[in-house]
Design a protein around this nucleic acid. Structure first.
Lengths: 248, 248
DNA sequence: CGATTAGTTGATTAACTTCAAGTCCAGTGG
DNA sequence: CCACTGGACTTGAAGTTAATCAACTAATCG
């Protein structure tokens, strides 16, 4: 655990959207004071526990997931640097989704009561957090559409586009091929398919010339616009509307 | 359009969770000042439009949905009295989900800039709204699990349990049989199935003695605990943890 | 070097969709 | 009052998609 000298990860992501004041930065620093490192596949919290911490992703990827008793798993969200983890657990104070490291991972844990200060002393920041929570909902809508109404090929295309666009948030000129630290079983758990069918469908996408793969893990999105047309894609990650934010 | 004398619908629902102050009530009244009535199946907003209003449901049911160009539809949420509509559209200021009346419906529209006042003058209420948004996410997690990893029978069971528990929020001792103002096509769009398969599966649930149906629209949940066991159900709609709320 | 994990492949099976026909209304107009 | 219409639901047959099962390959790691 150490003080971060550089700008925080959440602050970095948020400043893509809004102009942050000194005061905002000061409050955000409170949230990003502590860090904790995890290994790939390490379980960070398990569903059902009492909620102790919320997290900001500093480095690496994590994912939230839910299980059924008989072993089926659904991955709910991917978390990349600057993302917030655990807000769906806030209302009931018990963990709604288990969280696991998808790669080597650095998180900044903070206690929910830290929000107290933000709501009372930094209302504009509170509004920003609210907006991020709403944006999460927007992404869940798109995932629901994909899983509920798309076939395997479309689901994987949607996932790849979501992923690259989420990566671009922290690295706008991202270089291909992408390294996606998820096994095909995990990809299947994300899009609601089996690992076998993911394998077959990725091979199909490769034959169609939409993607290229190398080394087993690297994926290149070869024909992004064709893929966007197939799933009628729209990128959610645009600027924030701040017209309803409070002034200081 | 008329002033409401009685307690607002949102206020009524929130007071199931938290003790609202005079001040909270005053601010909530601002949001519930106007009302607008719609007929069953009437379109209230369409995806892609500029966001003009957020809504609170006063009476009746609505649902949010998304379409694909080729006509597939996914219903995202059901909205019942006291629910908030449209928060997923807030970040981008453009409507993310179309909204339609499922029954005769009364809504209270309010402009997003009204949130400005709540965040700056009623921080505790802002925290409550934030908590409601997080709770929405929690429900989306459960829907994602259902649609991504359950078969038709389990999905319908999950939907029925979600529905009755959501109804209990405003009417704790709800009387069966329930009247669910959704066609089987709409139910299918909600759970990611065709109307044909919904029909067959409901008949199966009826034969199994889990539900009973009458009049075409009425559904009775005959064996709720058995249904809860089948889908490993847990009811999200419990008390709110308010320990992180700001004081006034 | 065996042991484990991730991915691929093919055969079989199960679940769900599609298509098409038919029933049972409630509403409409002659 | 009755024929006509359209919507919602049901039913059965046929077709498709994805799951399951099982065997095999390649890579990694002690």
């Amino acid at each position: 655990m150490w003080m971060s000298e550089s700008i925080g990860c959440l602050a970095a992501k948020l400043s893509n959207y809004v102009q942050l004041t000194e005061r905002d930065h000061a409050h955000l620093d409170i949230l990003e004071r502590e860090t904790q490192t995890y290994q790939r596949h390490q379980e960070i919290v398990s569903a059902g526990e009492d909620l102790k911490y919320l997290y900001i992703v500093k480095e690496g990827w994590a994912y939230s997931y839910v299980d059924t008793r008989d072993g089926r798993r659904q991955i709910v969200k991917l978390h990349m640097p600057g993302d917030l983890i655990g807000f769906e657990s806030l209302p009931s104070a018990s963990v709604a989704c288990s969280v696991r490291a998808a790669s080597t991972l650095v998180l900044c844990p903070f206690v929910p009561t830290a929000l107290n200060i933000i709501f009372s002393k930094a209302q504009r920041l509170a509004a920003i957090l609210f907006a991020m929570s709403c944006r999460d909902q927007e992404m869940m809508v798109s995932r629901l559409r994909a899983i509920g109404r798309m076939d395997a090929r479309e689901r994987l295309i949607q996932m790849l586009l979501d992923t690259i666009n989420q990566m671009r948030l922290t690295e706008p000129e991202i270089s291909q091929p992408l390294v996606i630290p998820l096994s095909q079983t995990e990809i299947g758990d994300y899009v609601g398919l089996t690992n076998v069918h993911v394998s077959k469908t990725l091979i199909r996408l490769e034959r169609e010339g939409l993607i290229a793969r190398s080394d087993g893990y690297r994926v290149e999105i070869v024909n992004e616009s064709a893929m966007e047309r197939i799933v009628d894609y729209e990128n959610n990650h645009r600027a924030l509307d701040t017209s309803w934010f409070p002034e200081y």
